Amino acid sequence: MKADPAVQRRLLELADVDAELARVDHQRRTLPELAEIAEAEMSVQARKDAKVANETALGDLDREVKRQEKEIDAVRAREDRDRALMAGGTVSAKQMTDLEHELNTLQRRQTTLEDELLELMERREAVELDGQHASVELAKAEEALSDAAGRRDHALADLETTWARRSADREKLAPAFPQPLMDLYERVRGNKGIGASLLRARRCGACRIELDRSAISRIANTAADEVVTCEECGAIMVRTGESGL
């Protein structure tokens, strides 16, 4: 394939543009903020789960407290009823003895229930404090996520600006090349990542391999308008005064 040497040299401009576009694309996919965001999202989810678990435990304790209070109220009501009967003077001596025995039992039961209620209230207080801590930790995790997302968006905006500028440069450069040359360039770039490079000091700029004497001799005897490619990586090698031929 033949192409004007000046056109071949312009391939280096195109290759520089494509290299920067590739770097931008790589940076967009590997921004450190992306890993931060993934970690922060996991942290937020874990703290949300902890908060839900705490709210569930608090709800269970609230129901237990209400049940305990209801049972205490029932015992007190039974005590009030028994005391009213004893004060009314309408019960027999045997009934009086039974009522006194029942009152003693109810008082012991009430003491037990009140102790259990106190323990429940202490547990509830501890769980409530855990819930407050969980809320603080969730807020911190959400703030960290928001900060990382903001930095990611800022970095992406800068990269998008560079991408748009270099894409415009590419659109201006592309029409300068004959279609066969452009097809070769794109094919090699698609396979190897670099379509063209400078042959500098007898070394291919794409794969960095130094050419042997026979290859250098062959290229030196090749017409200037002949397109030469690297036998190792296939990239178009652009010859200039730096090539060492």
Results as ranks from 00 to 15, higher is better:
174 A>P: 01
22 A>Y: 10
54 N>P: 01
94 K>R: 15
79 E>I: 11
4 D>T: 04
34 L>C: 09
220 A>C: 12
180 P>W: 05
82 D>C: 06
16 D>I: 01
21 L>E: 08
142 E>M: 08
219 I>C: 03
51 K>E: 06
47 R>N: 05
178 P>M: 05
91 V>C: 00
161 T>L: 13
245 L>F: 13
111 T>G: 10
244 G>T: 03
59 G>K: 12
229 T>Y: 01
36 E>K: 12
198 L>H: 12
159 L>G: 08
135 S>H: 04
212 D>K: 12
117 L>C: 05
6 A>G: 02
205 G>M: 01
205 G>K: 01
153 D>C: 08
113 L>V: 04
89 G>L: 09
224 A>E: 11
212 D>R: 12
174 A>E: 08
164 A>V: 11
58 L>H: 05
110 Q>I: 01
157 A>H: 15
152 R>L: 06
217 S>V: 15
122 E>C: 11
64 E>T: 10
133 H>I: 10
171 E>H: 02
32 P>A: 12
51 K>Q: 10
237 M>T: 02
150 G>D: 08
204 C>P: 01
131 G>A: 05
19 A>F: 10
139 A>D: 12
164 A>G: 08
131 G>Y: 01
208 R>H: 07
149 A>N: 12
159 L>Y: 10
85 L>G: 04
109 R>Y: 02
238 V>T: 02
88 G>I: 06
46 A>G: 10
192 K>W: 03
182 M>G: 03
82 D>F: 07
231 E>L: 07
39 E>R: 14
242 E>H: 14
119 E>A: 15
16 D>C: 08
241 G>K: 09
128 E>W: 04
111 T>H: 09
116 E>L: 08
102 E>M: 02
121 M>H: 13
23 R>Y: 11
178 P>I: 04
166 R>C: 08
182 M>R: 05
134 A>S: 04
226 E>M: 10
98 D>S: 05
84 A>C: 10
237 M>V: 05
165 R>D: 14
83 R>V: 09
144 A>G: 07
11 L>V: 02
77 A>R: 14
202 R>H: 03
179 Q>K: 13
109 R>A: 05
146 S>A: 14
16 D>V: 03
96 M>C: 08
53 A>N: 15
217 S>L: 15
96 M>Y: 12
170 R>Q: 07
158 D>R: 15
109 R>Q: 07
15 A>T: 01
77 A>S: 14
233 C>L: 02
207 C>D: 01
17 V>F: 04
141 A>I: 05
208 R>Y: 05
11 L>Q: 01
25 D>L: 09
179 Q>A: 13
206 A>M: 00
32 P>I: 07
54 N>H: 06
182 M>P: 00
74 A>R: 05
231 E>I: 07
185 Y>C: 00
85 L>V: 09
126 A>I: 11
217 S>W: 10
104 N>F: 06
66 K>V: 07
95 Q>L: 03
243 S>K: 03
227 V>G: 00
17 V>A: 07
173 L>I: 02
97 T>S: 12
45 Q>R: 15
89 G>R: 13
49 D>I: 15
